[in-house]
Every structure is written in structure tokens, then in C-alpha cells.
């Protein structure tokens, strides 16, 4: 136990935690959207995220920015990040929709039981991960340095790096946009209607198939955004990068109350913070243990997560 580390580093641990938490939250939203509408743990979502990391990396590489190139100017960097975001979001979104079309839709047509969905999800996850593994030789790839590492804010030891700021701002903007989309637009109403009662929604003229595809697409887009910031934060990616982060993002979704969009945000940020504080307190080896212990303990006391399930209705 290193209490002094926790106390001394508290401001910076908080920023690190919130940044990581924002990434978790973006991925968690993908799980929560799909779960809210289909009651399905989209196990392949971690691979959707992983495809995004490669999409961004390849774009940068294609433009001549590899792990060995020098840091570009700020303008170029912002351009590259923006381009990376677009490509990663498109790649992840497309992957998610393909997974839905190939792995889940045929099962829904046949009214298969929930466990069958879980297995195809696992199967899809294997396929995506292994194909990428085979295509990339299962090695780790480095990222080009994009943003300068000297802090933009430095107040008495409390530092915020440009990357942290960018992550947090972009994540919040994206999540706000999603929330508005779901609450205010016609498509959003369709999503909420299907989440509440798919069959009635269908009778009321909501196109269920389209809504479901849309939900996968949205989840994929958000995962793509998360992928870019993950790339910049860790500085590398590999074919199995999605597994652990996907697991944790799912934990975050459950923590906040799966099916609940704001819950995913709360869960993600909370998980990021807890990990950050916990790793200072117990050592970074234990980061993952802390995440799961918190999850398990919380579920004991609040079996439906912090904010409860709500995209549709709570399930008994």
C-alpha cells in the first residue's frame, strides 16, 4: 500500500484515470447500445475496436507517418488525428455492421436462443482477431508520435498533456452528440422504441432491422474514436489488443448499468479512476484485479449497476 503515492499524485492520477475512463466509456457505449436493443453481449465489439486501431495506423502509415518518423507540426498533427478518427470510425463502424449482418441477423431470422448469439459472437471475435493476426504477422506495431508531450496546463505539479485534453474533449463531444441523437432524432426514437418493446415497435412501423444495423454502426463509430486515442495513448497496437480493453469496457458498461447510455459514461469514468488510484495504491500489476474486484463488489450490492438498466426497460 502506497498511500503517499496516492495522496501526492492525486491530481495527476485523476487526469490519467479520467482519460482512460473516457476511452472505456466510448467502447462501453457500443456494448450498451447493442445490449439495450438486443439483450446481447456483443463479444465481437472488442475486435471492432481493434480494427479501428489498425485503420488509423494504416492511414497514418500510408501518409508517411510511421513509428520512426519525427513529430509533425501541430497543424499536421491535428489533420492526421482528424483523418485517423474518420477512417477508424468508418472501419470500426463497417466491421460492426458486417458482424451484425453475418453473425447475428441470420440467427434472429431463426429466432435462436440468447446463448446461440453468444457463441456466434465468440466465433465472430475469433475470426476477426485471427484474420488480423494472420494478416499482420501477430506482431506489435508502433504509432507515429503526433501530439507534443509537454503539458498544456501545469499548475503546481498538476499537469494535463495535449493528448489527455484532446481525448477528454473529443470523447465528451462525441458522447453528447450520441445522447442528442438518441434523445432528439427520429432514428433515436426508433432505437428507444425497439429497446423498449421490439415487436410493438415493429407493429408501429419502426424498421427493426434498420434500427439494429444503426445501433451496431453507432457502436462501431464510437469504438473507432476510442481506437484512435488508444493508439496515441499507448503508442502501439496488435491483433489481440481488443480483448482486455473490450472486457474492461464491458465491465464499465455493467458497472454503470448496461443498456443505459449515461451509465456507460459514468461506469467508464469510474472504472478509469478506480484503476488509476488503485494502481498507485497497490502497484500497476494489480490494475486489472482492481477493476474486476470493484465490479464484482458493486454488483453484489447493486445488481443492475449504478444507474440501472434503462435504454429500454429494466429486466427482471
Amino acid at each position: 500500500m502506497h498511500f503517499d503515492d496516492l495522496v501526492n499524485g492525486f491530481p495527476n492520477l485523476t487526469t490519467t484515470g479520467l482519460t482512460q475512463g473516457a476511452i472505456y466509456a466510448l467502447i462501453a457505449l457500443g456494448y450498451t447500445l447493442v445490449y439495450g436493443v438486443l439483450r446481447l453481449i456483443n463479444f465481437a465489439h472488442s475486435e471492432v475496436f481493434m480494427f479501428g486501431t489498425f485503420g488509423a495506423m494504416w492511414t497514418w502509415g500510408w501518409l508517411g507517418f510511421g513509428s520512426t518518423s519525427g513529430r509533425p507540426g501541430l497543424g499536421t498533427a491535428i489533420m492526421l488525428i482528424a483523418l485517423g478518427l474518420v477512417v477508424a470510425a468508418v472501419v470500426s463502424g463497417a466491421t460492426a455492421v458486417v458482424v451484425e449482418l453475418v453473425a447475428y441477423r441470420p440467427l434472429r431470422r431463426r429466432n435462436a436462443p440468447p446463448l446461440a448469439f453468444l457463441i456466434t459472437a465468440i466465433g465472430a471475435s475469433f475470426v476477426l482477431m485471427e484474420l488480423m493476426g494472420a494478416a499482420t504477422g501477430r506482431i506489435q506495431f508502433g504509432m507515429p508520435p503526433l501530439l507534443p508531450s509537454n503539458p498544456v496546463i501545469n499548475v503546481g505539479g498538476w499537469r494535463i498533456t495535449p493528448l489527455q485534453l484532446a481525448t477528454f474533449v473529443v470523447a465528451l463531444v462525441v458522447m453528447f452528440a450520441l445522447d442528442t441523437f438518441v434523445q432528439k432524432t427520429r432514428f433515436g426514437r426508433g432505437i428507444r422504441a425497439v429497446a423498449q418493446d421490439a415487436n410493438t415497435a415493429a407493429l408501429m412501423g419502426v424498421n427493426k432491422g434498420k434500427v439494429i444495423a444503426l445501433v451496431f454502426l453507432l457502436g462501431g463509430l464510437l469504438a473507432g474514436v476510442a481506437a484512435v486515442f488508444h493508439n496515441m495513448k499507448t503508442g502501439n497496437t496488435r491483433f489481440n489488443v481488443g480483448f482486455l480493453i473490450g472486457l474492461k469496457a464491458f465491465a464499465a458498461a455493467v458497472l454503470g448499468g448496461i443498456g443505459n447510455l449515461r451509465g456507460a459514461l459514468v461506469g467508464g469514468l469510474l472504472l478509469g479512476l478506480v484503476e488509476s488510484y488503485g494502481s498507485a495504491l497497490f502497484g500497476s500489476n494489480w490494475t486489472n484485479v482492481i477493476a474486476f474486484v470493484v465490479l464484482v463488489v458493486l454488483l453484489m450490492f447493486r445488481p443492475t449497476g449504478l444507474l440501472g438498466e434503462s435504454l429500454g426497460r429494466a429486466r427482471a
Binding site: 453475418v102 453473425a103 441470420p106 440467427l107 431463426r110 435462436a112 446461440a116 448469439f117 457463441i119 456466434t120 465468440i122 466465433g123 465472430a124 471475435s125 475469433f126 475470426v127 476477426l128 482477431m129 485471427e130 484474420l131 494472420a134
Partner: peptide, 15 residues
């Protein structure tokens, strides 16, 4: 590629 094949097998069987 064996796990990729295996993944396809899982999907096909479940469908």
C-alpha cells in the same frame, strides 16, 4: 488460421 476457421465453424453451426 485454425482459430479463424474454428470461429467460422462456430458461427455456421449456431446458424
Amino acid at each position: 488460421l485454425r482459430y479463424a476457421f474454428f470461429g467460422v465453424l462456430l458461427i455456421v453451426v449456431m446458424i
